[in-house]
């Protein structure tokens, strides 16, 4: 049997704590607040992934920045004074083209990551401001989902001996890999405590546990008709 490492145990504990904390917050804040939180988290995730929204957001921000530079480098003055000569515009364009973009290709990853963090923080603050809206049970479930999403996002980034989540050998199917990783984490959480317990005590402890459970239920909850 492959033993679960200490790092995996840490991962599971952190995940439990995150999911539990967010589920508790969700039950307290209600469904609507958690929905807003979930919306911002999902938006943050999309912005954090270049292939989803990251590249578009970077292009848009660079475009806005260049438009502002154009205005600052003489384009605005030319429009205001009525000097709309091609020379004035081309001078401004040349300076804009020579200027460094707001987010260079080297900075793209860190910038989208920071944007993702910012969106998530905005979502958490906005969600916590909207207390007592909607049902607590749905809030709890959605809160747990938010916790799972955040754990899934950030646990691989923790700078310790946390192992990277194993990916499927079917690397040709990248679209489902993220989902598989989430399932993998859930499976580990469900299995890990038992694996540690039975790994130490031996497999014979499972039948004993089953027997104990049935006797407990028989004693506590079930009786003859």
């Amino acid at each position: 049997m492959q033993a679960f490492s200490f790092g995996e145990l840490q991962t599971a504990v952190i995940m439990f704590l995150l999911i539990g904390f967010f589920a508790f917050q969700g039950a307290r804040n209600g469904f609507i607040a958690e929905l807003i939180k979930a919306g911002f988290i999902i938006l943050g995730v999309a912005v954090g992934r270049p292939a989803l929204l990251g590249d578009s957001v970077v292009r848009t921000l660079n475009g806005i920045y260049q438009a502002l530079l154009f205005l600052a480098y003489g384009g605005g003055k030319a429009v205001l004074t009525g000097d709309v000569s091609p020379e004035a515009f081309s001078r401004a364009f040349m300076r804009v083209q020579a200027a460094r973009p707001l987010i260079s290709p080297d900075d793209k990853l860190i910038a989208t990551f920071l944007l993702m963090i910012a969106l998530i923080i905005i979502g958490l603050i906005a969600g916590n401001k909207l207390r007592s809206r909607g049902g607590p049970i749905l809030g709890l479930l959605l809160g747990a989902f938010n916790g799972l999403l955040l754990a899934y996002l950030f646990i691989p980034l923790l700078p310790r001996d946390l192992p990277p989540l194993p990916t499927s050998p079917q690397a040709a199917r990248p679209a489902i890999l993220g989902l598989l990783d989430v399932f993998d984490v859930i499976f580990r959480i469900v299995v890990l405590p038992f694996a540690i317990l039975f790994g130490n005590l031996g497999t014979w402890s499972i039948p004993i546990l089953i027997l104990a459970l049935l006797l407990y239920v028989g004693w506590r909850g079930a009786s003859s008709r």
Partner: peptide, 11 residues
């Protein structure tokens, strides 16, 4: 099987 599944298959 992935590692967690391989471990669980013993139980």
């Amino acid at each position: 099987l992935r590692p967690p599944a391989e471990a669980f298959a013993n139980y």
